[in-house]
Design a protein around this nucleic acid. Sequence first.
DNA 1: TTAGCTTCCGAACGATCGGTTGCTATATTC
DNA 2: GAATATAGCAACCGATCGTTCGGAAGCTAA
Lengths: 199, 199
Amino acid sequence: MSPRKSVAETRLTRRRIVDRGLEIASMEGLEGLTIGRLATDLGMSKAGVIGHFGTKETLQLAVVDEAADVFTREVPERVHDVPAGLARLRAMCEAWVAYLERHVLPGGCFFTAAATEFDDRGGPVRDAIAGLSAVWQRDLRIQARLAVHGGELPADTDVGQLVYDLVGIMLALNHFLQLQGDPAAPQRARRSLRRLLGE
Amino acid sequence: MSPRKSVAETRLTRRRIVDRGLEIASMEGLEGLTIGRLATDLGMSKAGVIGHFGTKETLQLAVVDEAADVFTREVPERVHDVPAGLARLRAMCEAWVAYLERHVLPGGCFFTAAATEFDDRGGPVRDAIAGLSAVWQRDLRIQARLAVHGGELPADTDVGQLVYDLVGIMLALNHFLQLQGDPAAPQRARRSLRRLLGE
DNA sequence: TTAGCTTCCGAACGATCGGTTGCTATATTC
DNA sequence: GAATATAGCAACCGATCGTTCGGAAGCTAA
């Protein structure tokens, strides 16, 4: 029925699929994201959806990539001009909190959900999630180390421990926001951040 | 084919189903827990499995209950004789860390997985998970409050904030253990606990 | 011994899963 | 303007999903 679209339109269709896929996956999980559901939501056939990717796993990887793009746009890119070191580390965390607080994705933090969903399995999707998570934590570690070397954080700071605590604060924020709907959670996250990184 | 079993055997069959169901659910999630898979694993028919519960949702609720029993047995019951207040709070957290460290369930903390899986939906399963999570956090809050009133923790301690931080430590522990396989994670968790609750 | 209750099985139900195939209609290329 | 490439559709595939049904088998109470 539907004819071939122009190159621009084709790219747009692909983006529509991935965007909607990311919304669904953030709510129902990457496995709960089904081709049929996606086709219905977008008003197209299953073949039209899967034709862009070939395989559901490839589609999942595209969604993971898109989630990474959204996160990058919403968090690290917003603090790109903040001076490196403690100031940048603080800004990264504040942007992180604001990102979760704003409910950019309807299902909360995509990576939290995807990580707990895939942490037991193998395969490229799990590897992609673990890799992106590791990259972000490495960025945090780099700024923390700069802050230590610059004397902005105590010289005996255990950087790995600090990143562990930061991740915990954000996981808790997602947990209290999504499961308990606790509106005080962002306040709590910011207070814990202040205790770790100073005022 | 299989005839009626004695009452004791019947209960045992039901327990076998729920026990295996909990193992599967901790790895694949509560939705990934499938009646067909369960039947295959236990060497029985799908009808034989679902006959004990009537509905998949009822089965899921039974699995959630079983997970709560396991957690209760492995954590709060082990510290029942520790004096109330700070000592008990510390013991609860240590038992919590040990529980995650020991990999009691193959898929890590069942409640972490189930909470992130169901936090966007409605229904009785989500309510059960949220309720059990709330009860455990209330127990933590009670002991924290006793510690404050007894002068074991600073008088200006924000108990809600403390519980928030404790939950974050455990979520991070599960995250680093399951996704990154980081063997240093329990050490990190204990160190963060010491910082919050003293030596 | 018999009647009833219950567990479990085999088989089937409609729905949905991921994926394939053949086709049409158009955008692009020559 | 003709040839080619391709986006998307309708229809279908085998597998699996949760669930239902009738009956076989044996425990239990009469």
